[in-house]
């Protein structure tokens, strides 16, 4: 946030957040396109790795550090490696490059293009699709508060006091705590909250008390069992079998 605040505070300064966003977005989309148009399965897998890793950068840029880390670890480190295993297991000469007919390409691109148009249109039709003003308003409020406090301190003589002895008035304390609360709300320090939410405690929304709405313990458990089942099922499905036909 400070990065953002810093960047936004100076209008003419290059917004590195934006820059990094465009970089990782370009990488992600580009390698996705490359994967799409590559017909070599091995290359496809490689491009996918890069694309997904870049996507994790996009996620980092949204402030979701934990999810981004998971994206890197699970996708790039796990799933795609799994896929690459699959590629290697089936990588016979005939299957490495499989061309698709041009008609299919055209059709798919038309349909995909229209879908993309639709989705983009929907994405940019979101209210305040461009960055909203509330961050800047908040910064301005903080600055204004700072100025007010300094001004009031100077006017009532608190400024002469030692730094340790300077005290805020009651009204100022209320305003400050309100500001701090609003700032903290957007603070991306969520890893601990995610962990607590997974065991059923919501720290970000203590006011919500409705039963069944608070935590994610049950979905977490379901997903755990699901993974176990998948593990067994995958092992069963992929086990070596004697070909009865041949």
């Amino acid at each position: 946030m400070f990065l953002l605040a810093e960047a936004t505070s100076n209008a003419a300064v290059i917004n590195w957040h934006t820059v990094f966003f465009f970089v990782v977005a370009a990488l992600s989309c580009g390698f996705a396109l490359a994967m799409l148009f590559s017909s070599n399965i091995v290359r496809m897998a490689f491009f996918l790795v890069i694309s997904l890793a870049s996507a994790s950068g996009v996620i980092f840029l949204t402030g979701s550090h934990f999810v981004g880390a998971m994206q890197l670890m699970i996708y790039v480190g796990g799933t795609v490696v799994l896929l690459i295993f699959g590629v290697m297991l089936t990588a016979q000469e005939a299957f490495i490059t499989m061309k698709t007919k041009a008609g299919d390409w055209v059709l798919a691109l038309i349909v995909g293009g229209s879908l993309f148009a639709l989705l983009t249109q929907a994405a940019f039709s979101v209210e305040a699709w461009h960055s909203t003003d509330y961050q800047q308003d908040l910064v301005k409020e903080v600055e204004k508060f700072n100025k007010d406090v300094i001004a009031s301190m100077q006017s009532d003589g608190r400024a002469e006091l030692d730094v340790e002895d300077r005290k805020l008035t009651k009204e100022e304390r209320v305003t400050l705590s309100d500001l701090q609360k609003r700032i903290r709300h957007g603070y991306p320090e969520l890893t601990g909250q995610i962990g607590l939410a997974l065991v059923g405690v919501r720290t970000d929304q203590p006011s919500v008390e409705a039963t069944g709405y608070t935590g994610y313990l049950l979905p977490f458990e379901i997903v755990s069992v699901h993974l176990l089942v998948v593990l067994i099922g995958a092992a069963y499905l992929a086990r070596a079998k004697k070909r009865s036909a041949e």
């Binding site: 299919d104 059709l107 798919a108 349909v111 995909g112 229209s114 879908l115 639709l118 929907a122």
Partner: peptide, 17 residues
């Protein structure tokens, strides 16, 4: 399989439209 994917996409678009 690929055709089904196409159907799904087309269907989605249609619904959106």
């Amino acid at each position: 399989l690929r055709q089904y994917v196409m159907f799904i996409v087309v269907g989605t678009i249609t619904v959106f439209v």
